[in-house]
Design a protein around this nucleic acid. Structure first.
Lengths: 330, 330
DNA sequence: TTTAGCCTAGAGCTTATGCTCAAGCCGTTT
DNA sequence: AAACGGCTTGAGCATAAGCTCTAGGCTAAA
């Protein structure tokens, strides 16, 4: 055995075998036991090879068609909010109050949705990436693709007030899934005051990321709620006090550091000038994919959608139904 | 329950549920038991729904990437025979002599391949369809698609010598999978003599199908061998005597009723004028996808490929390896 | 009553995973 | 320098979990 590059060679061989195992299993329709015989390995190994192939994202599964109810909701929402496209992930009404399950389903649906968009993206595109559990769920379920040409730039500050790095910036997850490059902004989400805002925004490292984010032609963002159990607060990006002030100023949602009221207007409050990152309005005219996982955020969604900045929307069926019933709410 | 259209309505509801089940199972990653709970049905029913979704072809699975060996073979074959594209389905060398398994794997791979081609086909295209077990396997594994605009026309006679309809003309299978229209030729595969040939070809019904087939812009054909265990003979489309004569005239393969020698030249024998259907040469310049399932047909393949009529090729790895080693054979 | 369809239960097979063991690779010990 | 022992890695065994199919009983419509 010539093994100049022992580790790499083994890996390549393993992947090759994994590919064969996946073909036999998924396309040929053989059981793992049969695959094992055909590849002359133990059944356990066959199973692990197939598992490996899946982890590597070699296996892509698509479901064609959606439940009629979802299609109807999509059409209503797309029309009402002038969306370019809309995906409603089917979810059951039995466990309609399971927040985690909702993130799981919406994330999985959004991953499929975003996967298609990424595939159509021209070479060397830059994608602006927001924050939140929804996007994190998306990235986690995104099939691995080979797009080292892509650049992912965070559209907002990534640190908490204490300047500690956020455990898992979503940008990192996208980089890991695609092999592309990632940039984040080494500043908090919100500045303490105008002075700090000006100072931090002037930093060269921030300006660099900011320019990338501004020139992106596609954005993936979450829609943040303003309750203490919502992402923004739960990871310490904003304080109790901030939230309190924003809410009393009429804000219902957070779109990458800009705060909108139920009618989709920016609320008149100093904090709206403290967001570190691109201005939400700077996304206008670009493709903005919003992923709305999590329950109980209908009013936040209403505000965000009415801002007119979102062009593509992914959410769960239960949320979509509530949203439709609230469409005229003010 | 208002059930004006009991059967259809139940089916639609079932399908809707099946779609939900498939989403939860394949995209959400839940176990069948969990799917059952979420849809409020019994686990068995959940299982059946998921199964139904698969049978309906809602679930599309793709494997990205092929074993290095297959890629290498594809490149060699594509270059040698000037193919537009080539797919080598991975198969193992352990069960390299399992004929049925080979049809299964090649058919499944070919189905994926053809599915992509069909998706790119313009509206209202006509597809010429050949015969054989390989194509039958392809059609069987083809995901269901909704293309009522397509027309499938048999490129050759479909009856055996006794004028009995062939149990399952492949055209029928394609029609069933796509919802398109199908036309076959109500005549045998080969005429008895020149006179019969002329008479049958002159029939209006034959002319009608023939014109459709001639105007197709895509063909899917098998490559037939000339042994008694091969399709042509096994279903009674040709007699022992025919085969004997063809072989002694140097023929090694059958391409929709035309017989070629190992160098890819039409053999000089009266039977070459007796084929009922379009002339193989009439496909020249069109896209011709050949599916070569089954083992021990390397020489037949060599003849068929050398004819220059085939533009796209699907075969199994074992066959491809043998073929490569015989590429210069004469 | 009969028939068809659906559900329940349970057996048998397939798939997933924790645990164990063996082999190779250091860094340390004699 | 040779030997020892922990550490990592990969493989298989055993078992748990999950999936699929069959038979039998129940309900509802003919």
């Amino acid at each position: 055995m010539n093994s100049k590059h022992p580790k790499q060679q083994v890996d390549a061989e393993q992947l090759d075998l994994a590919t064969r195992a996946a073909w036999l299993s998924f396309i040929g329709g053989y059981t793992q036991g049969e695959v094992a015989k055909r590849l002359a390995v133990s059944p356990v190994k066959a199973h692990r090879l197939i598992q490996l192939a899946q982890q590597q994202g070699m296996v892509k599964i698509f479901i064609e068609g959606e439940p009629a109810r979802c299609v109807a909701l999509e059409e209503q929402l797309a029309k009402k909010f002038s969306l370019r496209s809309c995906l409603i992930a089917p979810s059951d009404h039995i466990n309609a109050d399971d927040n985690e399950a909702n993130f799981n389903e919406v994330g999985a649906g959004a991953a499929r949705f975003f996967y298609n968009i990424l595939n159509q993206l021209p070479q060397s595109s830059c994608v602006g990436i927001g924050k939140g559990r929804s996007l994190s769920a998306l990235a986690e379920k995104l099939p691995k693709i080979n797009r080292a040409d892509l650049t992912f730039a965070s559209v907002s500050g990534s640190f908490t007030r204490k300047f500690s790095a956020n455990r898992l910036d979503v940008v990192q997850q996208f980089v890991e899934r695609t092999g592309g490059e990632g940039y984040f902004m080494p500043v908090p989400y919100l500045a303490r005051d105008d002075e700090e805002h000006e100072m931090l925004m002037a930093q060269a490292s921030v300006q660099f990321s900011l320019n990338l984010a501004r020139n992106a032609n596609l954005y993936a963002v979450g829609i943040g709620g303003l309750k203490t159990n919502h992402y923004l607060h739960s990871v310490g990006l904003v304080t109790d006090n901030d939230l309190e002030e924003l809410r009393s100023a009429g804000a219902v949602c957070d779109l990458i550091g800009s705060f909108y009221d139920i009618m989709g207007k920016l609320v008149d409050h100093p904090l709206n000038g403290h967001g570190l990152g691109i201005n939400a309005a700077e996304m206008a005219g670009k493709r903005v994919v919003a992923v709305a996982g999590g329950l109980g955020k209908e009013l936040a969604l209403l505000g965000a959608l009415r801002s007119g900045l979102v062009t593509d929307l992914v959410m769960g069926e239960v949320t979509a139904e509530k949203l439709v019933s609230l469409m005229e709410f003010k």
